[in-house]
Amino acid sequence: MAPVPTEQLAALARRAQAGDAAATTELLRALYVVVRKQIHFILGAGPAVDDAVQETMIALHRALPGFRGDASPRTWAITIAMRTARRQRRRDARHPGGGEDVEVAVFDVDQAGAAELAVMRRALAALDPKKREAFVLMGIFELTAAEAGRALGTFANTAASRFRHARAELEAYLARRGDESLTTPAAPTPLTEVDQ
């Protein structure tokens, strides 16, 4: 499902708040694809992910009437999903591995694409959670440092610092694992902490 432009999302949000049921459905479907991808890369795979996504969707549904439009609906959904994912991680600290079938079930990709996404997920799982969150928001969702800082509940500079450290650690991880990471769904290897 292709991403919906920000202006269109904002228009959908306005119509949804005015009581347009079709717009509500369309908006929530557009936000689902954002939230699903975000939680996939932050929490990994397994029932905990499905639970977190479902909780986020319920929260979005209920919070929609109070959405003020200060940020874009996409950033708003990402912020709510981040809070839900953190709660879920506190409840269930396991970060299950899983093969490419996880990606095949979620994304519209072929087997090769799924394998690459699985490598990305496993590499992210090896990061410290705070750095992982920053990398997902700024690297995959291309939020600015200010937007990521707001979603993470921290300063923009801190978000940017976590992103830089995360990137360096991911590059080291991928170089260390080499091509085997494309074929072996290994358990995450803890990375070395980098002082911030």
Binding site: M1, A2, P3, T25, L28, R29, A30, Y32, V33, R36, K37, F41, V53, Q54, M57, I58, L60, H61, E103, A105, V106, F107, D108, V109, G113, E116, L117, V119, M120, A123, G139, I140, E142, R167, L170, E171, L174, A175, R176, R177, G178, D179, S181, L182
Partner: peptide
């Protein structure tokens, strides 16, 4: 050489969630 991070990042950015999942999830929510 390991897989390139920028390549994986581009793949993750472009990956599209299957639309039928959105249909089912929004109905359930």
């Amino acid at each position: 050489a390991g897989p390139d991070l920028d390549h994986l990042l581009a793949r993750a950015r472009q990956a599209e969630v299957r639309p039928e999942l959105a249909v089912a999830a929004v109905a359930a929510a």
